[in-house]
Simulated scan of single mutants.
Amino acid sequence: MVSLITTTYIYRSDIKALFQYKAALSYYGSTGQEVKNIQYKLSNWGYYDGAIDGEYGYKTYTAVRSFQYKNGLTVDGVAGPETLSALGLSTGATKAASTSPSTGNRNLDLLAHLIHGEARGEPYIGQVAVAAVVLNRTADSRFPSTIAGVIYQPGAFDAVSDGQIDLEPTSQSIKAAQDALNGWDPSEGAVYYFNPVTATSKWIWSREIIKQIGKHIFAR
C-alpha cells in the first residue's frame, strides 16, 4: 500500500521531459566514473561505506541523501549540479556516466519489482496504474524527482518496508512497467492507492477518489 503523501496530476509528456533532463545527472541506476568519484568523496567524509564500484545503488543513493541533508541541499538522492558542486566535483565533464544504455532498463526493472511486490495478483490494468502513481509523483516538488527516489522514500511503500520489492518480477510486471513508462496511466492521474479492506487511516478517505481497479482504490 502506498503511503499518504500529497501530490498533483501532471501530463505524461512532462514526466518524459523530466527523465530527459535527469539523464544528464547521476542518480539511482547510473554507472561510470562520475559515480565512482561521488562514492569516493562520500566515503572519505563518512557518508558511504560501500564499494567504490561506479554503481549508483541504494547505498550510494542513501549516502547522497544524507550528504544533501547535512549540507542544506534539496534532499532527493540525485547528484545534480548543486550536489556535485558541494562535493567538489565537476558538474559537466562526465555526463556519459549517467546516460549509459542500461539506465532506462534499470528504471524499468525497479518499477517492475515494485509492481510485483505491491500488486501481484491484481488485474493487469491495476498493475500499470500502480506504476503510474510512481511516475505521477516524480514530477511534483513535494516528492523525490526520480523513480528510485519515490520508491525508496522512507515509509512510502509496504513492499520496500517488508522486503517484497526484492522478489523477482514476472514478465507481466515488466510489461506493466513498460506500458506505464510509455505513457499509459489507467489511474487517471492518481497519486495514492490503497486497499479499502485493510486501510486504517481515516485521512485517506478524505482524498478525491478517482476509481477502483481490482482491490485498490486510486485517488488524488
Rank of each mutant, 00 (worst) to 15 (best):
M1W: 08
S3Q: 11
T8R: 12
T8W: 15
Y11F: 04
R12W: 12
R12M: 10
F19K: 06
L25P: 02
Y27N: 05
Y28R: 03
Y28S: 04
S30F: 13
T31M: 07
E34G: 07
Y40Q: 10
L42V: 02
S43F: 05
N44L: 06
G46C: 04
Y47M: 07
Y48V: 00
Y48F: 15
G50T: 01
D53C: 00
D53H: 04
K59A: 15
V64W: 04
V64T: 09
V64R: 02
R65P: 04
F67A: 00
Y69P: 00
Y69T: 04
K70A: 13
T74I: 03
D76Q: 00
D76F: 04
G77S: 07
A79W: 03
G80R: 05
L84E: 03
L87P: 02
L87H: 02
L87T: 00
A97L: 11
S98K: 07
T99G: 11
P101S: 13
S102N: 02
T103V: 14
N107S: 08
L108E: 13
A112D: 13
A112P: 01
L114T: 08
H116K: 09
E122H: 03
E122G: 13
G126Q: 02
A129T: 03
V133W: 08
V134D: 09
N136K: 01
A139P: 08
S141Y: 09
I147C: 09
A148W: 09
V150G: 13
V150Q: 07
G155E: 14
A156W: 06
D158Q: 11
D158G: 07
V160G: 12
D166T: 03
L167R: 15
E168S: 07
P169T: 03
K175N: 09
L181F: 04
W184K: 05
D185R: 10
E188S: 08
G189K: 00
A190I: 02
V191S: 12
Y192G: 00
V197M: 04
V197R: 10
T198L: 13
K202C: 11
K202I: 04
W203M: 06
S206G: 05
S206R: 08
I209G: 10
I213V: 13
